[in-house]
Design a protein around this nucleic acid. Sequence first.
RNA 1: CGGGGCGUAGCUCAGCCUGGUUAGAGCGCUGCUUUUGGGGAGCAGAGGUCGCGAGUUCGAAUCUCGCCGCCCCGACCA
Length: 550
Amino acid sequence: MRASQLFLPTLREPPADAEAVSHKLLVRGGFIRQVSAGLWTFLPLGWRVHERVVGIVREEMNAIGGQELFMPVVTPAELWQKTGRYRIPELWKIEDRNGRPHVLALTHEETVTFHARELQSYKQLPQILYHFQTKVRDEPRPRGGLLRVREFVMKDAYSFDRDEEGLELSFRKHAGAYERIFERCGLETSAVQAESGMMGGSESIDFLAPARSGENTLVTCERGDYAADLEIARGVPRPPEFPDRLDAPEQVDTPGIETIEALAGLLGIDAAATSKAMPVVRDGRVVLALVRGDDRLEEAKLSAVLGGEIRPATDDEIREAFGADPGSLGPVGFEGEIVADEALREGQFVAGANTTGRHLRGVEHGRDFQARFADIRQSQEGDACPRCGGALRFQTAIEVGHIFKLGTYYSTPLDARYLDETGREQPIVMGSYGIGPGRVMAAVVEQRHDEQGIVWPRALAPYDVHVVALPGLEEQGAAVAEALEAHGSSVLLDDRDQRAGEKFADADLIGCPTRITVGKKTLDDGAVDLRDRESGEERRVPMAELGALP
RNA sequence: CGGGGCGUAGCUCAGCCUGGUUAGAGCGCUGCUUUUGGGGAGCAGAGGUCGCGAGUUCGAAUCUCGCCGCCCCGACCA
C-alpha cells in the first residue's frame, strides 16, 4: 500500500483532552478518530489491526468447536423484559415507527437464548455459538479513547450444556482459548476470579492486562500463587494492637472527631483497633456495614452478601435510624441488620456510641452486639496473601476479556429447555464469554510503546514492513516493496513527498515491526537498511536477501 | 448523577480578567524557490457562524443568564 494514497492522517501532537497513552498514540498514528463521546471511527490502519485481533480470536474460537453466526443489534424489548434486564440503565432503548419498544443489544444472551429454544434434545448438546457484533451501551462515562466506549464490536460466545459438569468443561475450554488469544496478541494478562455484575450467574473469570490506564485493580501475590480483581480480593490485614480488655463497653467523649485518624490519635490507640460504621440502604431498609477503622468497605462484596443493589444512606436516614450524626455511629443498640467484616470477629474495638460526639471503648461481638460476618473489606497495600502470607501487589489493569457461568439464568425465563434420556424437560445450562477487540488493541498499545510511538507485536501490526523511500527514490522503494510482497509480506510504502525525518517519525509512531529504508547510500551498496522497531537495531541487508526476511 | 475544567482556523493554543480598528501565533494545507538519512529555510496564498441562543451596551470572542458539547475525578460499569 502506498502511503501517498492511504487515508492516514498522522498528527504531530496528541489531542489536547487525551490522557491515556493508547488514546494519544492511536489518534496520533491515524488509527482512530472520535465522532462523539465514546463513539469512534476506526480509520483504515486501525481497522486492519482490529481485524487482525478478530482473526486470532476467530481461529481460537473455532479451535474449541465454536460456530460463528451473526445476530442483529436491534432486538425487541420483550426478550429483555422476560429476563429482567430491560431496566438496566446502560440499555439503549429505541422505538420503531409504530412505537414498539426495542433495544440496542448490550450483549446477546437474550437473543442467543431465544435461538437456543430450537435445541430440544440432549443429543444436540453441547454447543458453542459465537459472533462478532456491535454492542451499544449508554455508558454514564465513556473515557480513555477505546478503553470505555458506547459502541464497540465484541466477540461474544455462548455455550449450551445439559448440566453443570458440561458447563465446567465449556468454561475451561474458553479459559484456555482466551489464554492463547492474549498470548498471540502479545498481551500480558492475568486470569482472575471476578464479580459477575449485570450478567447474572455464578462464577466468572476476568482477564486483566496490567497497564498505566485502566479501570480495574489487579491484586497478585509476589510469589505468584494468588491473583484476583480488587473487588473480590481476600487480602489478610495485619493484626491490630489491642489496648487492655474491658469487662463492659465504656463511653468516651469524642467531640468534633470525624475521622478514624483523629479518633485513634485522641485515644492513643491503633487505628486497626477501631471500627467504622457505614450505613447503607438495601430495598428501603437501613443496613449497618461494619469494617475495621483502617479498612475501606468494598461495596461490590457487600452488595453480593446482601444480594442486590445498595446505596449509601442519606444523612436524614441515618439520623432517623441511629438518632445520631454520621461519625458517631456504631453497632451497639442498633436495631437493624448488621453485616460485620471478618476482621472484627475477634477482639475489642472502639465504635461509635450512636450519640453525637461519643464513642465506646471495648466493644466486643457476641457480648455487645450481634452481627452477620462476611468478607466486606477492600484489600489494601500491606495485606498478606490469603494462600501463602506473601506480600500482595496492586496494579491498575484493563479488563480485556470476561467469561461467565450463567447456569440457567437466561434459559429458565426464556424457556430454553431440552429433553434428557428419561424424557424429562431440563433447562439448558449456559455460559457466556466476551472479548472486545478494540479494547485489546488499546491494551496492547498501553503495554507496548515507547517515547516515539507504538511497538506492535508482529501478529497485530497493520503491515509487516514499513518501507521508507527517501525523497526522490520512490520508484526504487516501490521495487523493494514489490519484492517483499512477492514473498508474502504486507507492506506500507512511504512514497509521500516528505522529508526523511518526518517519514522516520511517522514510521516509529505507527509501529510496524520492521522498517526498511531505501536511500542513496543503501542503493550504492545494492542494499537497504533494516531496522527492528522493538530493539531499534539497524543493519544493512543486500537487496538479494529481501525474500528471506521475517 | 455529584465535583472540577474546557469550547477561538484541520491540530495545539494566545487574546477574555480591565468590552473599542479588519480576531492572532505555531504546526498543517496550496503554489513557487531552496533543501534533502530523524519533524529544514524563504516568498506568496487559502482557511473563522470566536459552541448555540437570549440579554446588557453606542459597541461583545471579551460582561450576564440559559442551553449544548467535550475532557478529568468520583458514583456507576460485560
